[in-house]
Nucleic acid binder design. Structure first.
Lengths: 214, 214, 214, 214
DNA sequence: TATGAATGAGCATTCATTCAT
DNA sequence: AATGAATGAATGCTCATTCAT
């Protein structure tokens, strides 16, 4: 792996584990057994590292929430979407835990965040429309967009919510699968008789993951 | 006012205006025309100041969300609750903007937060039950608790959400009245024919406030 | 001596001995056996220290180059002026050695420099006029100002000139007395028969000092 | 052009434009689209680059200030000398702006500077003698050397002086033509009736250049 | 010749906190 | 109660230079 990518990966890991605020650039360099100078050879400053991680986030969102091709729809497709939700939360959990702080310090990043969230909203709306059309969900057309928005808000603040509500020390995969289940619960409210069975299986699937110890 | 209280008030003001992170203890002391040593005579450390502010928060919540006495119910009562929601968000907005950060640094404070939130949840549930009983709302008994929870979550993260979504520089009273309106909108979904008129007047009331310039 | 003044004096000393560029704030603090934090308690930053030294420079120039009272004029008065020239060069030699650099980094300081130099020019002109009137010098009235200017330029760049011309390691008092002698030489060109003797004695006085080993 | 020369030219340009201090070796390499490693293949270190630029300076001085052949003397010859003064100041202005700093860091370079300045002094003296002999100037023989010295000092510190005196942002060609005019003014003081006209034309020539916008 | 990743000592500055008075 | 000088560990970042390829 290239040094630049190693720095990004190590930073992401340390940010997720110890928080972005308390992870210093010297920390990251030391963790990689490299000099701080080399880190600054590859990145202009700490903000630049965060922005590069944000690019990963953008790319992931972009690819994960594309509408599916017509013939594809079955449990696997839905699982891929819910897995993507989980993966996003888990992979970038430091960001969700400090969104206000991180975006508050970097106006350019905030603009990028707004942009990508707008796209996510669009894609999510399309996805829900498709699921309605294919008889998996039953949502009034004028409420689809609001549903997508609710889901986005839930996903965006699930980690913050958990960090303020649970007395545990940190976020585990199980915590995030709980979040996935909450989203599923919202879907369940709009399930059709066709999809009830599928959703039951999905719930079983993620319940099992939510119970797994770290 | 006693020195101790002056410190609390000044800290609250500065935290709200400039953020807790960038408000130093020397800053607070200077703002009060007092020595940092004196500040540390009255408080063990910065955390101690935040804890004292948190006590104000607890007291406010405790007194504001008590069930009303039977004969009272009219528009004024509802306004008093919604005003209390607004007041809480406005008065302690620095906390809402940094909840994860603040609670993450102080486990004892987190425990107090959990406790007070549990009480708020209880009181809110009782309140909703009362409003149903008095024919103002129509919510299935087993859904009342979940409704209270949704409202709490909306209030808790409205400020964070606004700080990440809007590209404006900061939180204004109008922003928070928008939040109050969102909560009202949820209530509206459960309004009875008796209360429809009342809710319309409430909406008018807060819409006007949300439009007022800073 | 107050800590603030001790910092100024130590900084001045270290700047003069080792150059301003290579004298770090930690250096200064260590030299005084104090923490860097304390240094920054008394001064906002390094620039602030330099500005405070510059205030000393301003005050010195202001007091040293006042016109003399009529009855005063004798050798002692002239010696006091030439001594002031020497003292200024010696006391603030780091500044003269790095004028371009120091003023180039701090526009506000440059403005103060321009202002004080304008005042020095005025005072020097008045002084020369007085000396002419008292029969010590004979300069055409329209050339007095230009003479003052030449002297100022000579004093301002004597140290720089010496640092580029001599292969010795540094500036000594003797070097600066040489500079004083050069200025005296200019005066000599305008001496009257009344003052010739006085100037001869002055030259002897400073020649002796210029020959003294460090 | 050879890589080595390209490095020298780029360094000279960047030093003149942005100052030697704030022009890093990586800067120079990037400006040339080359790796820092390659730069260090051609030069041992930054000092080595400066020394190579200094060689250009030496060569220029050596060739520009040679006595003229007897039959040549007319306005053109004088213009060529004054143009050479201008060219030297303009081409190597970063050096004049930081002479103390640059020579203070490199004792060997200082020795070369002393040597070349001695030669310049000699040549300038010869030149003035020739001009006297040819009836263009009238200077007492024992004062010729001192006149040459004064001119050298004026040229050497004109840029430094301007950088400390003007509140403008930087050195322009006009600034340096002003310097040339100052030198001309000194010559004027020793002009003969034969040369008065010539000097007037020279003054006109350089005044026009000094007034030209950048 | 040339690349470009890597080094590492060093710097100005911050801030919660302490403590003698 | 109050002062205010003092602490010191920590932080993000720079840049001339090296060296394996």
């Amino acid at each position: 792996m290239k040094t630049r990518d190693r720095i990004i990966q190590a930073s992401l890991q340390l940010f997720n584990e110890n928080g972005e605020r308390s992870t210093t650039t010297n920390h990251i360099a030391a963790h990689l057994g490299m000099s701080p100078g080399n880190l600054y050879y590859h990145f202009r400053n700490k903000e630049d590292i965060i922005r590069s991680i944000f690019t990963l986030y953008e790319n992931h969102l972009e690819s994960a929430f594309q509408p599916y091709t017509p013939q594809q729809l079955d449990v696997e497709v839905l699982i891929s979407y819910f897995d993507a939700i989980f993966y996003t939360m888990w992979q970038f959990r430091f960001m969700y835990a400090n969104l206000v702080d991180i975006l508050g310090r970097d106006e350019a990043l905030k603009q990028r965040y707004l942009k990508v969230q707008t796209r996510v909203q669009t894609h999510a709306t399309e996805l829900l429309t498709q699921l309605c059309r294919d008889g998996f969900l039953c949502v009034a057309p004028d409420k689809i967009s609001r549903l997508a928005d609710s889901i986005r808000m839930m996903v965006s603040f699930w980690i913050s919510y958990q960090l303020t509500q649970s007395d545990g020390s940190g976020i585990t995969k199980a915590t995030l699968y709980e979040g996935v289940l909450r989203v599923l619960m919202i879907f369940n409210g709009y399930a059709t008789s066709n999809s009830a069975n599928t959703f039951a299986r999905l719930e079983q699937h993620y319940s099992a993951l939510a119970l797994r110890p770290q």
